[in-house]
């Protein structure tokens, strides 16, 4: 009996802790939509009334649209490139044994723990030394570098859970290696690929430090927002922008999870994907 009461009170303590934790984590996020609709340039309570003019302002801001398009371009390109690289690396590391595999994989995963500021400074040095111009492509280069380890981690799990004899069965039935990859391997790791694309896209979309160092004349969205923060009058519209981005990420993650579940149901295997979403 006493043991039960003990767990009970411990449970309550944990619950309070968890609640406080979530509040701390998400309260600032909840402030975004509140101030996005607040009819005042000053970000402070008490609220002054409802307005949608900050969204209207967003609608009008040309440079914002440009940076949004840039961000989408960078995000899509780097997530596709990182995922392609991830597919190759994950496939090689789960299927083949080759000398120097361990150190090589460790090296590829290194950007996962390197501070971004170091990556950014190092890359800008090299790019300048090589005499290349800073552009969206240099940002993409940086983003591929930091996204690839995530892609490899997600895709390695997906490839590792794939039964090797499925590929052998396909070869055995007369299919070529390429055909086997397209007809068996790819469909079965597709949830992992979708996860990888979504995660990489999300990472790229809100990445600031590397983009800040490597961006040329065209800026990405986070760099643009940072520029806006110097003007207090623009702050509410930054909140409005944040609200829209929040909605977009929620939508993306929901979509990702929907596709993962659907494919898991179709193949009858839970968690084939090794997906993170």
């Amino acid at each position: 009996m006493s043991g039960e009461t003990g767990t009970h009170s411990k449970g309550t303590g944990l619950r309070v802790y968890a609640f406080a934790y979530l509040l701390f984590l998400y309260a600032p996020v909840a402030l975004l939509p509140i101030f996005a609709f607040n009819d005042s340039q000053i970000i402070a309570f008490p609220l002054s009334g409802f307005t949608d003019r900050w969204f209207g302002e967003l609608w009008e801001a040309e440079p914002l649209h440009e940076s949004l398009m840039n961000s989408l371009f960078v995000g899509i390109t780097s997530s596709v490139l990182a995922t392609l690289l991830g597919i190759c690396a994950a496939r090689a590391s789960t299927r083949y044994e080759f000398p120097g595999k361990k150190p090589m994989m460790g090296f590829v995963m290194l950007p996962l723990v390197l501070p971004e500021i170091i990556v950014g400074v190092a890359m800008i040095n090299i790019i300048v030394q090589l005499g290349m111009d800073l552009s969206l492509w240099t940002v993409i280069l940086g983003h591929v570098l930091i996204c690839t380890p995530f892609a490899i981690a997600i895709l390695s799990a997906a490839f590792a859970s794939l039964d090797r004899s499925l590929e052998e069965a396909s070869l055995d039935l007369g299919e070529t290696r390429m055909g086997t990859f397209l007809r068996v391997t790819l469909p079965l790791v597709m949830p992992g690929i979708v996860s990888s694309l979504l995660i990489c896209f999300t990472i790229s979309l809100d990445e600031f430090i590397i983009a800040f160092f490597l961006t040329g004349a065209d800026t990405t969205l986070p760099v643009y927002i940072w520029g806006q923060l110097r003007f207090p009058g623009r702050l509410p519209s930054v909140f409005a922008l944040g609200t829209l981005m929040l909605l977009a990420s929620l939508l993306l993650l929901t979509l990702g999870e929907y596709f993962r579940r659907r494919s898991a149901r179709k193949t009858g295997i839970e968690h084939t994907a090794g997906g993170l979403v």
Binding site: D163, S165, E168, A169, D172, R183, P187, K266, G268, I269
Partner: peptide, 27 residues
Amino acid sequence: ANHRPTNMVFQSYAIFPHLSVAENVGY
């Protein structure tokens, strides 16, 4: 393997999970 006149029944059966029974057999 794909050019040999042999076919294999695997210990794990290796049924393609994303395909129907007919698609498996017709693979």
